[in-house]
Design a protein around this nucleic acid. Sequence first.
DNA 1: TTGAAAGCGCTAACAA
DNA 2: TTGTTAGCGCTTTCAA
Lengths: 337, 337
Amino acid sequence: MDKRQITLKSIAKALNLSPSTVSRAMKDHPAISAKTKALVREYAEKYKYKPNTLAIRLRTNRNNTIGVIVPEVVHFFFSTVLAGIQEETEKGNYNIIFCHSNEDYEREVKSVETLLDARVCGILASQSKTTASFEHFQEIVDSNIALVFFDRICTGINTDKVVVDDYAGAFKAVDYLVQTGCRQIAFLGMNPSLPISNNRRMGYEDALRKNKIPVDKDFMKVCDVAEMVHKVVPEILKRDKIPDAFFCINDEVAAYCVQIVKASGYRIPEDISICGFTNSYITEVTDPTLTTVDQHGFEMGKQAARLLINRIEGTETKPGIVSKVIKTELVVRDSTR
Amino acid sequence: MDKRQITLKSIAKALNLSPSTVSRAMKDHPAISAKTKALVREYAEKYKYKPNTLAIRLRTNRNNTIGVIVPEVVHFFFSTVLAGIQEETEKGNYNIIFCHSNEDYEREVKSVETLLDARVCGILASQSKTTASFEHFQEIVDSNIALVFFDRICTGINTDKVVVDDYAGAFKAVDYLVQTGCRQIAFLGMNPSLPISNNRRMGYEDALRKNKIPVDKDFMKVCDVAEMVHKVVPEILKRDKIPDAFFCINDEVAAYCVQIVKASGYRIPEDISICGFTNSYITEVTDPTLTTVDQHGFEMGKQAARLLINRIEGTETKPGIVSKVIKTELVVRDSTR
DNA sequence: TTGAAAGCGCTAACAA
DNA sequence: TTGTTAGCGCTTTCAA
């Protein structure tokens, strides 16, 4: 039943060799004779020897594992990033320990603890919406563990990051809305403390300014989840002066916005244009389909993972803090004129 | 700079104790004096001692890590299951190593290797669409590692599983379609080698039979991704006898189906009803919103993880292979009469 | 070309 | 109440 595990030692004993010789034979050490190598290899093959990773890691003090903290995995963008991370770490021969903060500060702190306990060699993190302090992230840095933020970066920590050009993406989208004739463009954003939201707001404002359209604070609302859309959008539509476009912080908000705007009797895009952000699956099945800004999450995941691995392995050539920016792309569909 | 790590040994030296005493003090061993405990604790606190998990795991031969293999994480259902798994493993104090087969057999095999190499204490897996052989899964069992399949179970392996009551879910949905007046119900399914698809097909057929409606093979198609919908549905709509309902294998198929059916000039649900499966976000933003079958992915993830942990810890009381079934629920929205 | 020995950080049986 | 010792499985220096 409980078959003894095959170890270097057991192989050594069986073959009348020393463990060190077996170890060397297994890793093709030049000093070992071809004959011995063959002998050891054959035996190992036959008895399905599997090196004990734990022992190797303890011995070498490197465990080829990185931690990933995602705020919400049931989300097109973040799951796409995760897929990108996975692809890259697989290539680099790293395992991923997956943590889910679920947009909750406490769980985020706990996730960091977990990862430090597991002695990962690096951490990829995107902070939760509710995170306001960042000692836990500082602890990672203090422990000399590589840390790369992606998308929702933490401005309080000075470390590598990979972000989307939120400003440019928003600018392009809003400028496009203006070019197609919109003049009263509402912005449905997130908590402005998150840089991604703030940057998009600036892109939005600058696009308006460039086109000599006044920026109206009344047209800027925090509105980033379904329930808020159902509250905020009808309110806006009840005003005397209603917008002729909505620029939304993500595709879900845009999709619900489409619904509400249609239900209120307006035509899309003739009366009101709507633009999302992310380019998730959802954009293809709303009616009309959604114009949006592609965030290239997969690429972001890959680049973040690559950067982290380079840091870990000391092969990152750029000096100082590295800040990568993923280009966004306007994807025009039918929800805009 | 390169601060030496705090270890039990280093604490022992500093405090003039033996490592074993320190070890015991840290874990509140009854034999240690309160004074010593306090001393050790204080020192550990001050210098932020963190036990080396790797060493503990090597020593105790248990690493509190489980592996998860997901076929496609950018997918409402699977990411929801992952979130459920994460919630439960966090409670149980297990880490998750995340693997992504990406619906690819080769990567699935590699994932299993990775997890066995990492010496996880258990594996949760849902197989990829392209998996036809299962020696890799058998290897898990042979290695005496706990294995629980979820959703896309592998029928070739005799082990614990957690599935949705696909048959009942399909039966309910199709029966509902019939009750609401549909008579020609098409089934857009997956590769019939996957049990989930086969079970739903049987539910579909039995619901028709129960209602004395002939089962027509021409109304049953393999059609489970966007591109296929764009090919298959228009073909069906070109026939002399077209369906008055589509029962779809997932919500994405249903959503694209809505689009195509509308574009072909039919009204939903007056002319044609459409029903999906999963109850993902998408169902709320199509127009009309989608009737679907809720799969309760989060619950499935939790139960699968719980079952696996019980197996690992030997606390599963049920004898033999355990097969859990998650109840589905028909969610009626506007795409059906 | 191979082996002996030490040690990674921790635990636990046994001894004192 | 505390210490000694051995060892988990592996790597690596040093010696032979």
